[in-house]
Amino acid sequence: LEARLEQAAMLKRVVDAIKDLVQDCNFDCNDSGIALQAMDNSHVALVSMMLKSESFSPFRCDRNIALGINLTSLTKVLRAAQGDDILTLKAEDAPDVVNLTFESPESDRLSEYDIKLMDIDQEHLGIPDTEYAATITLPSSEFSRITRDLSALSESVAIECTKEGVKFTCTGDIGNGSVSLRQHTNVENDAKSVDISLTEPVALTFSLKYLVNFCKAAGLSDRVRLCLSNEVPLLVEYGLSNNSYLRFYLAPKIGD
């Protein structure tokens, strides 16, 4: 494997956004790119990352390999990279280590690290293609604000989507709160628009702790997409350039 990223910031942000949810992960490398899929210990959230080969230049992966990496270790090493450094990942066949180099674009500084790999026996879970009843695309900063504000009051949030719009509601010890958004097109800045596509009304309840955690990915994309269907895990997607993405699935709280 040899994969060169123009900006180390991308990988730094991805790892930062997932390291509190999952600890030891396989980075599955093949000629289409680098993928990661991992579930948190309590089986409430699933992280699915895809960094397409087009997001790297160059990208070369001659044989499929799984790089078992501890994210705490990776975070320690990535801290040594500046956001605008050029980052190159390298691994040999049947590797013991993954090699990371950080090149400063302005100086002749080159730093190089090896991280020991782990043997991670991870079961691969199939994610079914789902036709969601409601898809909401909104500014990622707006979604962060809603989850942060409501998490001050309650542990969970009800997300209700109807043709009127989407409503986030919470009930807590000190009182309750809600935020409603309507479909809205910002003609000056499309990134600030709220798009709602609905085939049937949806109402689901989720843990805010996890949603707040997902919002650590907000720096990766101006926009976030929420996909909901009744009694199905919520999909929170941050799209990256070249069709790469960081997706989070969150189990709803159901029944009584």
């Binding site: 579930m39 089986h43 409430v44 959230a45 699933l46 079961e123 691969h124 879970l125 199939g126 994610i127 079914p128 309840t205 843990s207 009694e231 199905v232 895990p233 699935y249 189990a251 709803p252 709280k253 159901i254 029944g255 009584d256």
Partner: peptide
Amino acid sequence: APFQMDLYNYFIKS
């Protein structure tokens, strides 16, 4: 109280 869906059971092993 509502119960938390288990994602492991949802995402069937492929």
